[in-house]
Design a binder for these strands. Structure first.
Lengths: 310, 310
DNA sequence: CTGAAAGCGCTAACAG
DNA sequence: CTGTTAGCGCTTTCAG
């Protein structure tokens, strides 16, 4: 009893002695480490998500090992690193390529708890933090429709879970407004330099040219606006656009992009909470995060778009 | 011999057995973990630096623990986490606040190898990866001077190693052009909303008003341009500006920002290499990274700025 | 209720 | 040159 007290005092005296997590982990077969896989930390979107995760984990003494999957080789390396480091769990974002899905299945199959963000990887058990992509697409399109636009483009790829969902929302809004879907309004630019010029000449020459676009990615939207402006178009006066993401890095972009806000940090935060709950053996359920429209200055509210025919 | 062969075969058979790093680390007293401290991963600048570090480390089997120091509390938590996890080394960026300097001194004092980025923390031994900030400030200012501007603002705080160095370069360029330094041209906005209006009225009312500004931060530069434009000024026609950083997130900003490019990923990469070398017991030296001017569209080359008096 | 001891999975030193 | 063993620092179990 008194010895114990002395021990405590001695420890307090040494002050800088922290228990060795390696030994502790060896005994407990835990590492107090969580792996977080992202497609690219340099995209401000994922930096925000990571920050959210990290904010939650650090309060519970868990370290976050960042896994930036940018090549097939990095995917392989992280597979083995997560294994050898013996992480206690993994948070994995959607949109990761380079065979990561298979690696995640392997890891999950070996018993590592996994939480997914934005989409489920087939064959991997675990909760996922979803975002209401459909609602986002719906709100974005409705905003354009409400401003009087009738021929609204969807500019983006039509594959991948996320884009598909957003497109679903786009169609929903159109339908609700009684507008017949027109396949020719759904386009994407694989090669901007070549295809954008063709697009522009189409815009000027056709009478029933589109007057607005929903572009399910802020980065693409900003690029689009940039090109439009260098072709002499004014945004939103001549053409309206709504993006998706609400990237903070675009804060000072002019004109301010009307877009759909996602709860980026929350995404990471909730994923971390789910994982922690799972580690404690608690039951977990998928989380669905809401989105909202952020109105700035890329939607022309006053007129029905140049050649609209309402 | 034959048993060994069988062992190898069995291992190959099991295939998914990876040696337990915890046990290995316990024996070797190493963790194969590196801590990386940044002021804010959500700033695209640091995301790039982290990506560079991570790219190097993963090839050597080291995991990267991200330490995002955004509050005093997070600084404290990471101090103890880095200790308990027993990281093999630490890479620490400049501009971290919340008492981190002291924590880093503590950790270094306990024997953890440290590599610093952008500035040395007093009392911490270890190599640092520097950027030629003075040259950057010089190139930025010279670019404005070469375009004919004579009254060039320096907009930014006059404290902190990095800003001070950039300002040094600004003064150097001025001096070289035979322009007397004018303290009133060095300003900073503590509260944009209030002070910017005052600044603008000064701009319109004075005959010898400045015609250009070097703003040693892209984010601030873009904000400045944004404000300028909403006051009816055109950039670069009415006012020229040069930033610093060359943030990729500003890629589509209009007008394209003329700025100083820093080698962001390289910064992180070299820091990792220095740390690895240190862990191997090799001798290390500071690294100085070069910068370059990236000319885009925020400097008016044709005229000497509205009210210039050359 | 306190104190000793076994063992987590590995490596390095040592004996055979 | 191969095979055995001690022990890294902790936790947990078990004996005192």
């Amino acid at each position: 009893m008194e010895e114990t007290r002395q021990n405590i005092l001695r420890i307090a005296g040494e002050l800088n002695h922290s228990p060795n997590l390696r030994a502790r982990g060896l005994k407990l077969s835990r590492s107090f480490l969580i792996g977080m896989a992202v497609p690219n930390i340099s995209k401000s979107f994922y930096a925000d998500v990571v920050q959210g995760t990290e904010e939650c984990l650090k309060d519970y003494g868990y370290g976050l090992i960042l896994c930036n999957i940018v090549t097939r080789q990095s995917a392989d390396r992280y597979l083995s690193m997560l294994r050898t480091q013996g992480v206690d769990g993994i948070i994995s974002c959607a949109e990761i390529e380079y065979g990561w899905d298979g690696h995640l299945r392997t890891l999950a199959g070996e018993g590592t708890p996994v939480v997914m963000i934005n989409d489920r990887v087939a064959g991997v058990d675990g909760p996922v933090v979803y975002v209401d992509q459909v609602k986002g697409g719906y709100l974005a399109t409705k905003c354009l429709l409400d401003a009087g636009h009738r021929r609204v483009l969807f500019i983006g790829r039509s594959r991948g879970y996320i884009n598909l969902e957003r497109k679903k929302g786009y169609r929903q809004a159109l339908e609700e407004a009684g507008i017949k879907p027109d396949g020719s309004l759904c386009i994407s630019f694989d090669n901007w330099d070549e295809e954008f010029d063709a697009f522009i000449s189409g815009l000027t020459n056709h009478q029933q040219a589109p007057t607005a676009a929903f572009i399910p990615s802020d980065l693409a939207a900003v690029k689009f606006i940039n090109r439009l402006q260098s072709c002499g178009y004014r945004v939103p006066d001549d053409f309206s656009v709504v993006g998706f993401d609400d990237l903070s890095s675009l804060q000072w972009f002019i004109p301010g992009l009307t877009t759909i806000r996602q709860q980026k940090k929350e995404m990471g935060f909730y994923a971390a909470q789910l994982l922690l709950a799972r580690l404690k053996g608690e039951k977990t359920e998928d989380v669905l995060l809401d989105v909202e429209l952020v109105e700035r200055n890329t939607v022309c509210k006053d007129k029905n778009g140049g050649t609209s025919y309402e």
